[in-house]
Write a protein that binds this DNA or RNA. Structure first.
Length: 601
DNA sequence: AGTGGCTCAATT
DNA sequence: AATTGAGCCACT
């Protein structure tokens, strides 16, 4: 059997080679691209049934030339058939329980070496030692601050050895919201945010797809719900803890919550009328009781952000709260539920039902590929006509989108998608920190006594491909760091979708799997529009600048000499200014970058 | 149930 | 650095 005759099953489950429909026990699903294959039509089927779970298909294991070269960095081991062999070894080890096997498989897939328990202890110890060394280099703070940070960091390492698959940049936070020492009230009233589980930046537009979900690898599904604003935040659907609108006036709005806070709201499920924020007297700082309008709303701040999302036709994530007593579509119980993305088709100003003051109004219409939680439909939305909105007769400042929407229905594909590239993120991924930590880090960063330490730190910011200090650093969803040019060139010429052909006949298009050079994660989506990690870039730049200023020591760490670096400067959309002196991330980025390195050996 | 007051995080 | 905000708990 030659390679050319290897084909998977089509979407209907029919083997494209033998044209039969294999029963489930004869069908094998690829652990990477999730495509089913007919076992008896494979040239080299896996030997044990147990390895089914993590089996890699011929395309993904590198058996054919259809797969992009993953360019594995030296010493990191190869992926593909080696991985299959390693999984076989795990499965064959009778000394392991099913849980332990699962854990090992998971580690393997996350790019970590398979190690014995003893080695794992050793690695843990090394990680901790490394972290301590770095901190001691880095911190010139009082003893209390130092020990606080060390405690925090050790905790992070502990957690990462067993629970966390991917290294995410704020994983030093606990899984649950927590109460700081100075907060007098317990529970979620005055709690700090816990870990953010997804790897989207805070200004990410649209659905949260699987590649941003290293924990479950499924993304946030329509209909998922959470107990409070903290957990909804941690899954990335809506970041503000109080505000109903997440957005920036100069950039757009990413998400809204319907909680019945404004009595003008009108919910029809597939579409609704939303009221802007503001116009209330919050001088008593009680955000619940002051529901009377005290002045007019305008299209500014978050209201302007919503208007921008209307203008550009961005998808806005919608969360419904059970607190909304007026809506028939609000979830039962005490919950917040993700209902999918909507587009804002129009916005205007009208006098609110309270009578004397104006409010901003927004017409939201659903445009999600998943059906709404309250329907039994099997498919998502189709474009629907605008509803009749009587209050438009009295509207002023009416605004409608004139340009074509960024997120729209593709008739050919039968689904909603980005017709224009989504806006480039202006935020780093997950740099949430608590205020104490932030202060300590800032102090450390601005300290004048750690010149030589900076030089050493700079070396930690190496590209995993060219092994030089990164130029235009990008961080993959699996938290590996590369020069943008190095990473992009790895996948040059590879498109997201690939056509399969056989005998001159075109078969269904299939997603091209593109593996991270450091681990088996599929970064095909990410590679379509990789954004420079500005936070890391700033730290590198700052370290370099200070080094130059100090000029006490020469560092022989050259820049990456890739050919296509020059044309790219840091994209600060809207203005071309130098990064501001907004140094916050610091250690966190360093930790991620280097933990990756130590994980890999 | 009504309400006082606190705290977090983000935008400006 | 200041302002804002469709939360949240506990007390009456």
């Amino acid at each position: 059997m030659t390679r050319d005759t290897q084909f998977p099953c089509d979407p209907a489950g029919v083997c494209m080679r033998c044209k039969s429909t294999p029963p489930p026990e004869e069908s094998l699903t690829c652990g990477t691209c999730v495509t089913p294959w007919h076992v008896s039509c494979l040239s080299s089927p896996p030997e044990t049934l147990e390895s089914t779970l993590q089996w890699l298909c011929p395309d993904c294991s590198g058996e054919t030339d259809a797969l992009p070269v993953s360019g594995v960095a030296p010493g990191y081991g190869s992926v593909g058939s080696d991985l299959v062999v390693a999984i076989h070894e795990i499965e064959a080890d009778n000394s392991l329980s099913a849980e332990e096997k699962a854990k090992k498989r998971q580690q393997l897939l996350s790019g970590k070496a398979v190690v014995d328990e003893d080695d794992e202890e050793e690695k843990k110890r090394k990680d901790t030692m490394w972290a301590q060394r770095l901190l001691e280099m880095f911190l010139e703070v009082d003893g209390t601050g130092k020990s606080q940070l060390l405690a925090r960091l050790s905790k992070r390492v502990d957690a990462s050895t067993s629970k966390v698959v991917h290294v995410i940049s704020n994983e030093d936070r606990p899984d649950k919201a927590f109460t700081t020492d100075r907060a007098k009230k317990l529970g979620n009233a005055n709690a700090s945010s816990g870990k953010i589980f997804v790897t989207i930046p805070r200004d990410h537009f649209g659905p949260i797809t699987a590649e941003y979900d290293p924990v479950r690898n499924q993304g946030v599904l329509v209909g998922e719900s959470w107990k409070g604003r903290h957990t909804a935040r941690q899954w990335g659907v809506h970041f503000p803890l109080v505000s109903g609108i997440a957005g920036q006036a100069s950039y757009g709005a990413q998400s809204v919550v319907l909680a019945g806070g404004y009595e003008d709201d009108e919910d029809h499920g597939e579409w609704f009328l939303y009221t802007g924020s503001g116009g209330r007297d919050l001088s008593t700082r009680n955000l619940r009781t002051n529901s009377v309008q005290g002045f007019d709303q305008k299209f500014e701040k978050s209201n302007e952000a919503l208007r921008l999302s209307c203008k550009l036709g961005y998808p806005v994530r919608v969360v419904r709260s059970s607190k909304d007593m007026h809506s028939a579509y609000a979830p039962e119980g005490e919950l917040l539920r993700y209902d999918g993305v909507y587009r804002i088709e129009k916005c205007w100003i009208k006098v609110g039902v309270q009578g004397s003051y104006k409010v901003c109004r927004f017409l939201f219409i659903r445009c999600d590929n998943e059906p709404a939680p309250w329907t039994s439909d099997e498919h998502g939305d189709r474009p629907r006509p605008l509803p009749i909105v009587p209050e438009l007769n009295m509207a002023t400042n009416l605004f409608e989108r004139k340009e074509s929407p960024s997120w729209d229905f593709d008739e050919g594909e039968g689904r909603w998608r980005w017709m224009k590239p989504p806006p480039a993120s202006r935020k780093p991924v997950n740099n949430v920190k608590d205020p104490e930590e932030r202060k300590i880090l800032r102090k450390a960063m601005t300290s004048t006594h750690s010149n030589t330490m900076r030089a050493r730190l700079l070396k930690e910011f190496k590209c995993q491909i060219c092994q030089q200090v990164m130029t235009n650093p990008v961080t993959t969803p699996c938290a590996h760091n590369f020069c943008k040019a190095c990473l992009v060139s790895k996948f040059a010429g590879k498109t997201l979708m690939r056509e399969r052909s056989r005998g001159g006949r075109t078969l269904r298009a299939q997603k091209n799997v593109m593996k991270c050079p450091c681990c088996p994660t599929d970064i095909a989506e990410f590679i379509q529009n990789p954004q420079v990690n500005r936070e890391v870039a700033e730290v590198i730049e700052k370290l370099k600048n200070q080094e130059e200023e100090d000029n006490t020591e020469h560092v022989d760490e050259g820049e990456c000499s890739g050919t296509s670096h020059e044309e790219e400067t840091l994209p600060v959309s809207g203005d071309a200014k130098q990064p501001k002196k907004r140094i916050k991330l610091d250690i966190d980025a360093t930790v991620s970058a280097t933990v990756v390195e130590s994980d890999m050996k």
